[in-house]
């Protein structure tokens, strides 16, 4: 050892070289272990160019997937729109159903209209008078009609029964006079038609020996038809 002449205190040199050795070797071993460990995860040992190509591949894949995602989103939107449309049609059908129920007479209805009270005077009220009145009301555009709170429908029958002792409406016996007929519709139009001089129903009824009074109201309630509407023989004709 003495052939290497070293300047300075030999112990100081020894200690310093000792420390330097510790630092250098420990750092080297750390590095070795790091490199060994990272070789397990291959990505980080790949060269930069390889990583670049892999990155670009992933990017293209990502873009493709993004496109697909967009397409699928569009499809989902379309489906949602059709669902909404279906809901709309369902709503429309519902409204139509309500309307037709109202028209057919399956619901209680209210609205402006007129109330006509028919009573016996010199003659008794016959079914024909009621039919005449209903016809005239329909002609005047009445939407709902009831006789003594019995709803008058499309297939309603109004007939004299048992030698004209009582009148049947909807196969139900009516109480005797007075007969109260309610009609919902344009109240002014109906009242003007009914009270036409000479040809109006009121005039004709009085000339026929009955008493008829007309009452115009802003709100009339007409009950629904209580029976069942049966369809036994007819069915829809499908034109080919």
């Amino acid at each position: 050892m003495k052939k290497f002449k070293i300047r300075g205190d030999i112990t100081v040199v020894t200690v310093v070289i000792f420390i330097v050795c510790i630092v250098l070797v420990s750092v080297m071993f750390m590095q070795f272990r790091t490199i060994e460990q990272t070789e397990i995860t291959q990505i980080e040992t790949m060269r930069e160019s390889e990583l670049r190509t892999a990155l670009s591949e992933w990017k293209t894949k990502y873009e493709e997937l993004e496109k697909q995602l967009e397409e699928i989103d569009d499809k989902i939107n379309e489906y949602n729109e059709t669902i909404e449309n279906n809901e709309e049609t369902a709503k429309l059908i519902d409204e139509e159903l309500k309307e037709s129920n109202i028209l057919v007479g399956k619901t209680d209805v209210e609205g402006e209209g007129v109330i006509i009270t028919l009573n016996n005077n010199s003659k008794n009220v016959k079914a024909y008078d009621l039919i005449d009145l209903v016809n005239e009301l329909r002609y005047a555009g009445a939407e709902a009609i009831s006789i003594n709170n019995t709803r008058v429908l499309a297939m309603t029958d109004i007939i004299d029964m048992a030698n004209d002792t009582y009148i049947m409406v909807n196969l139900e016996r009516l109480e005797g006079a007075p007969y109260v007929i309610k009609a919902i519709g344009n109240k002014e139009y109906i009242s003007s038609i009914l009270s036409l001089k000479g040809s109006g129903f009121i005039d004709r009824a009085t000339t026929n020996g009955l008493t008829a009074s007309l009452e115009v109201k802003n709100k009339i309630e007409i009950p629904k038809y209580n029976g069942e509407i049966k369809i036994e023989y007819m069915k829809e004709l499908v034109k080919e």
Binding site: I19, V20, I22, V25, S26, R33
Partner: peptide, 10 residues
């Protein structure tokens, strides 16, 4: 000695 200790630490 320094190398040995350094290796152990590392």
């Amino acid at each position: 000695l320094g190398c040995l200790i350094g290796a152990l630490i590392g």
